[in-house]
Design a binder for these strands. Structure first.
Lengths: 200, 200
DNA sequence: GCACAATTTGAACCATGGTTCAAACTTCCG
DNA sequence: CGGAAGTTTGAACCATGGTTCAAATTGTGC
């Protein structure tokens, strides 16, 4: 098992390797989907032997959990950026929407693997779900803020947030980089549609 | 194997049994999701032995394909109904949206199993995908019609249709009958959001 | 009742794919 | 070098769960 050494040099190297594996796993999960991705596929993507993965990660579930956390980290970063600025609610919602679509679709076209919390069992599921809830809360907050300011019409922020997120998450199912539009362009069109939808 | 008899009495009985099995499978797929649903679970839902399922269906994939076709049939019916009437585009889009949400969420809360074409292999995949394309075309048509009539603003109908469908399909991931709102209410809120989003 | 077809059973079979592990290899000081 | 710690290998192991099938049961026409 890894992590038996106290040497910081070694620990550093292990961390790098872990990240490398996670990146590869992330790619393969996106490309092939959750079920079609085998440990052997991930190993092949790295040119290493299957068993080696287990030197760095306990099992496939842990691997997936970290991959999902990675995606959520990116989204949470985005949320922080958007929260920071002082634009009106509609502009901020648009930014959040565009960023979300770009993050989910940049690089390799993908499956929903990065978002399928249902695939995780209980220690992990809660952890990832909590992060996800936190992220989704950002949408609700912006919506509520916009309603309070009178820019948005009155709606149930929970329902509206989930409807918006559905539209965005679903893009990974149909967006293809070679489809003639960039992820950002798609993001803009989504923003246009959804922000207009909530305007007062 | 079934279907060796030419007796219409027998054929009728077989059809009924098939429907019964498909209904059960439909329920279990919704409840447990695609991967968590075993043949044994479906058999248990019916109180029959596993092997018996194979008397009526070739394999799990065929079962899933028929279940998905059943869902699509319902949606296509809806599309026909909506096409029939002579309301303006915005009203028709709203009807389609509401109906879609209700169909996907009535009865048991669900997973996306009914919509995961990716889980099917090539003979079936094409067949189901074609039906799905036909259904999605309805959205594009209404959008184009609305744009032509000037009720809707100019957008890329393909992208807009997929964005709308994403919001709707995603409802099965979060809607719960005991959540205080009915599927129809959710459908109405989605319609409000999305129709407003495309209005000129 | 009897024979024959149709249906149902469930234990056994088997493919897939996650997981283990002892051996081989590398790295890095002393 | 030498050897200990760290890393990698890949064949073998094994659990899960879809699938088969011969036997048992039920239904039907004569």
């Amino acid at each position: 098992m890894v992590q038996t050494s106290a040497d910081p040099r070694v620990q550093q190297k292990v961390l790098e390797k872990k990240r490398e594996i996670l990146d590869a796993a992330s790619r393969v999960f996106r490309r092939r989907g959750l079920q079609s991705t085998g440990m052997r596929d991930i190993a092949a993507e790295l040119g290493m032997a299957v068993g080696n993965l287990y030197y760095y990660f306990k099992d496939k579930e842990e691997l997936l959990a970290f991959v999902q956390e990675g995606t959520l980290e990116g989204l949470l970063d985005l949320a922080v950026q958007v929260r920071k600025n002082r634009l009106p609610a509609d502009a901020r919602l648009a930014l959040l929407i565009e960023g979300h679509v770009v993050l989910l679709n940049e690089g390799i076209p993908g499956s929903l693997a990065h978002l399928e919390v249902e695939a995780l069992r209980e220690p992990w599921r809660r952890k990832v779900q909590d992060q996800r809830d936190a992220y989704e809360r950002t949408f609700r907050e912006i919506l509520e803020e916009g309603m309070a300011a009178g820019v948005f019409r009155q709606t149930d922020p929970k329902v509206t947030a989930m409807a918006i997120l559905g539209a965005l998450n679903w893009t990974v199912k149909w967006f293809r980089p070679d489809g003639g539009k960039t992820a950002l362009e798609i993001g803009r069109e989504c923003a246009e549609l959804l922000v207009r939808g909530v305007m007062a």
